[in-house]
Amino acid sequence: MKARRNGRGSNDAPHGCENDSLSGRVLAKLVPLNLRASGTEDGMTVVSARSSEWVKPVTQQDPASAIIEIDRVSQVFQTSARKDHVALSDISLTIEEGAFVSILGPSGCGKSTLLYIVGGFVSPTSGAAKMKGQAITGPGPDRGPVFQEFALFPWKTVLGNVMYGPRQQGVRVTEAEAQSRALIEMVGLKGYENFYPKELSGGMKQRVALARTLAYHPEVLLMDEPFGALDAHTRTRLQNDLLDIWERDRKTVLFVTHSVDEAVFLSDKVVMMSKSPGRIRQVIDIDLPRPRRRNELLLDPRYQKYVVDIERMFDESDEAGAPA
C-alpha cells in the first residue's frame, strides 16, 4: 500500500502549496492501511472517529515521495501574428506518488500543455519536468495518456487496441490477451472485444482508451479532459467508474479538466490555473473521505463548499483579470 496523505485534520479552507507540502509530511504518517475499509457506508465522521485505529507510523517509505516534479516550466508559442503567446509561465508543481491531482482552469490556460510536457509530448521553452528524479525528455510507458479525442487505433478491434501496449512491451500474446480481456471486463466492455472503434459510442471509446493505457501499467495516468467530449450522463458514469478503478490500485493521476465538480469529486488536490499567461493560482487540498460516493458527496456540505469556493475564486479572477 502506498503512503497516501489523506489530508485528515487539514483545514477546510483552501490554502497554498507551501503549507500543503508541510502538512502533507506530517499527515502522511497517519495512513490507513486498508483504504477500502476506512471509508465505509457511514462516511466521513466515522473515518475521523476511527482514524486512531488506522494510525500507523510509516517508517519504511518516504511518506510524501514526489513522483513528478515540475520546475519553473514556461511554454511560449509563436502565433501567426509573430506575437508570442505565453501558454505557461513559470510553473512549479510537485505531484506525490499515488495522488489524484486535477489541473483546473479555463480553456486556454495551458493546462493541457502542462500535461503534454509531463507526458514528454511537448518540450517546454524553459524549465524542466522530472519523473522520479529523471528529466523527462520524451514519452515513455511510465506515463500513460488518455486523451479527450480517445485516439484509439481505428484499424484495431477493442481487444487489439488494449493488447497493443503490452505486445509492444514484449508480453507474450496469450498473456497479453488474458490481461487485456480482464481489463476490458473491468471497464465494463465485456462482449465488445471484437468491435471496431467506429462501432462504439463516445463513452465506450473512452473506456477502451482507459483500458488500453492501463494495459501497459504506467505509473502515472495523464488524463487530458478525458470526459470532455461526453454527454453529462455518460460523463457521470465514467467518473464513478474511474474512481472505482482508481481506488483499487491508486496510481498517480494527473487529470486536466475545466469542470469544478469533476475536479473536486475526483481529486486529492486541485491545482487552479489562471490564463494568459498560464499560472498556478492556487493549490487546494480536497479533504473528503474515500471511497467517495457521488450521492453522499453531493449532499456533503464540505464538498459543496469546495465547489462554491473554487467557482468564486474563478469569478473573482475573471473580474480582476480584465485586460490591462
Binding site: 507526458g119 514519452p139 500513460g144 495518456p145 486523451f147 485516439a151
Partner: peptide, 12 residues
C-alpha cells in the same frame, strides 16, 4: 491524429 501518434509513443 497527433494524439494517436502520442499514444503510440507512450507505448514505446
Amino acid at each position: 491524429e497527433e494524439k494517436m501518434l502520442w499514444s503510440g509513443a507512450a507505448m514505446g
